[in-house]
Amino acid sequence: MAAKQSPSVVSPERQTGAGADIAALLRELVAHLRQNRTQLREEWARRITRAQLLTAMTEEEIFAEATSVYDNYVEALETGTFEALQAYARNLSERIIPRGVETHEVVGIVLLLRDVLARSLFAKYHEDFEKLNRILDAYEPAANRIANTVAVGFVQERERIIRQQQEAIRELSTPVLQVRERLLILPIIGVIDPQRARQLTEQLLRAIRTNRAKVVVIDITGVAAMDANVANHLVQTVEAARLLGATVIVTGLSPEIAQTLVTIGVDLSEMATVGDLQGGIEEAERLLGYKVVLQSELPHPATKA
């Protein structure tokens, strides 16, 4: 018998009447699950494959993960504590999220395990309906909590990854590029918050100095929304650039942004705006005295190669 393999943590509530009863039932349950470990685990892995979950993983991988999830599951049932399971769920999520495993799959496999185990309990206690009921009373709340813990762990890990990626995008997304002698472009993509606006302005001012820029085109096609704060940051950036002797042209204001800015009454009269990036660059070239001419339109015939 595999019963009482390890001393279980007994919480105070378990020591009183009904609590002690539940604890005893759970112990019996855990013993049953340990005893039938191999068979139940295989059944579970089979059902995962049949339900076409975890398609991103090979069968061996599924079986290996199923084994450790099973053991952690039984352990959580036995000890009634979820810290270890939480840590395991986080660790598991870290490994499987990059493989493209979806939330519904994770929830799906945990629910499948719950079902497989419940079925095995039906099979074992089908002659003693009274006992089956009591066992299920003890099993169901614990099983639901486990399912909950794993799902929440997975979602939290995903959110953590999303936050991390947002930060990475933020750091990468403020390039200042020189397109011609003395002409810089600054394409802004994404959300501008005060911190990013500050970083953006500092970067632009430094670039104006090092590149000796006279004209800067700030393209905000990639900015989805703008409020009064962001607009004021933009005005400040334009002013600061002017103090360094550079003219700023803002391009790519979307119809929505144009409407918002006018509605909230931001004063953009100091700002030169042009419809799109192409127009902005053409205007900048005009300011710098460049003239772009098609080769075929040159007054003197170009020498042919």
Partner: peptide, 14 residues
Amino acid sequence: IVGIQPEVAFAMVQ
């Protein structure tokens, strides 16, 4: 006016 430093420009605007 020439030679305003970037940091000075930023502070002035703020």
